[in-house]
Design a protein around this nucleic acid. Structure first.
Length: 338
DNA sequence: TACCGCGTCGGCGAAGTATC
DNA sequence: GATACTTCGCCGACGCGGTA
């Protein structure tokens, strides 16, 4: 019985992957956006119980701080999907509204939580129950509602150190994500307030401009296939951006990867580094499956995306973007740079 | 000493099914 | 058909033994 179920799931999975590869992102109407700066820093994978989280990438570090006493830091896959949905909405509003119109910063969630969840690629489930150990198990709709509260009660601090001609530049940006979050739950609807009744968030001016600048196209179909793994989501979005702009192959050492991704493991601990890379191998395998170019072999036998043995890190060769420019062919070779 | 492979655990998310 | 409850599977994390 279990084997049969697994078999059916694998068949379904294979059909979905085949569809991803047969149809372009435009034919599937699956294009979304991520922000190029937020790609380089992520949310934690689990509830850390802390009120602050920092991730570092080279000269840039991003610190998120929970502002609500009641709701802590966002974690897991939902806030990641939420940020991609939000970036898409911002890009859309930036094009359809007058740049001076404050209404462009007002983002509606829609009338129903289930519709909103569908937009994120999550099937709506409701209610909660107590498991045999007495723990309360919340449905995904309740978990998403909690992550919405957490994401929109954050402050983001970005610190960058870089060189510009003969100057060393320090840059500090502090921004609230939202200026105002209004969630209207329908009390007459069934137990856990399923109707959102035109709930909305008003993004802060700074955060709206931040998301609007340098959006990176991502394939929502690929994201849906990866959505059960926060690490795989991070890897895909990061790779989409990083591999395309790379001029030559590069290796990211394990501690650097750990500082950037959402793990709470210690980069200075060899055991933790090993655990992290084991998980990274799994994420890379998923990537090979849903984004075939990452598993392409070069004449040397090296794959374009590969975890190196003996804890050397992750090696990446330049690749086409996951979402190619509309006019170009999907099989186009990476452009030559430098 | 560092890395790898595997088993286990608790948490999270998805899916099946019952109920209204 | 929508909602509520239950179970299952996958994930990250942890621990341990084996290997180079």
């Amino acid at each position: 019985m279990a084997d049969k179920k697994r078999e059916l799931r694998e068949l379904k999975d294979a059909a979905e992957v085949a569809r991803l590869q047969e149809l372009s992102v435009y034919e599937r109407d699956d294009m979304g956006f991520a922000n190029s700066k937020l790609i380089q820093a992520t949310f934690p994978y689990r509830d850390t119980g802390e009120r602050q989280w920092t991730s570092t990438n080279g000269g840039m570090s991003v610190t998120i701080t929970a502002l609500s006493r009641k709701h802590g830091l966002p974690y897991g896959t939902y806030p990641r999907l939420l940020m991609i949905w939000l970036t898409g909405k911002v890009v859309e509003n930036a094009h359809s509204f007058d740049p001076e119109d404050p209404a462009r910063r007002k983002i509606f969630f829609g009338n129903h939580l289930s519709t909103f969840m569908e937009e994120l690629g999550i099937e709506a489930r409701y209610g909660s129950h107590t498991d045999f150990k007495g723990n309360v198990v919340e449905s995904n709709s309740m978990r998403l509602a909690e992550q919405i509260r957490r994401v929109f009660n954050l402050n983001i601090n970005i610190e960058s150190l870089y060189e510009l001609e003969d100057k060393a530049v320090e840059s500090y940006t502090n921004t609230l994500i939202s200026q105002n979050l209004e969630l209207y739950w329908d009390k007459h609807s069934s137990p856990d307030q399923y109707s959102l009744l035109d709930s909305y968030v008003v993004l802060s001016e700074e955060f709206f401009d931040f998301l609007k600048s340098r959006p990176v196209p991502v394939d929502l179909g690929v994201l849906r296939k990866l959505k059960s793994s926060a690490m795989a989501l991070d890897l895909y979005v990061w790779l989409t951006h990083r591999a395309f702009y790379a001029r030559r192959p590069f290796i990211v050492p394990v501690p650097a990867l750990m500082e950037q991704f959402g793990t709470s493991l210690d980069p200075d601990d060899s055991g933790d580094r090993r655990i992290f890379m084991k998980n990274m191998r799994k994420a890379v395998k998923k990537m090979h499956k849903v984004w075939p170019e990452t598993s392409e072999e070069l004449k040397t036998g090296e794959k374009k995306l590969e975890v190196l043995p003996r804890g050397k890190g992750l090696r990446v060769f330049p690749m086409n973007p996951s979402v190619p420019p509309k006019k170009s062919s999907r099989t186009k070779k990476p452009r030559r740079r430098g």
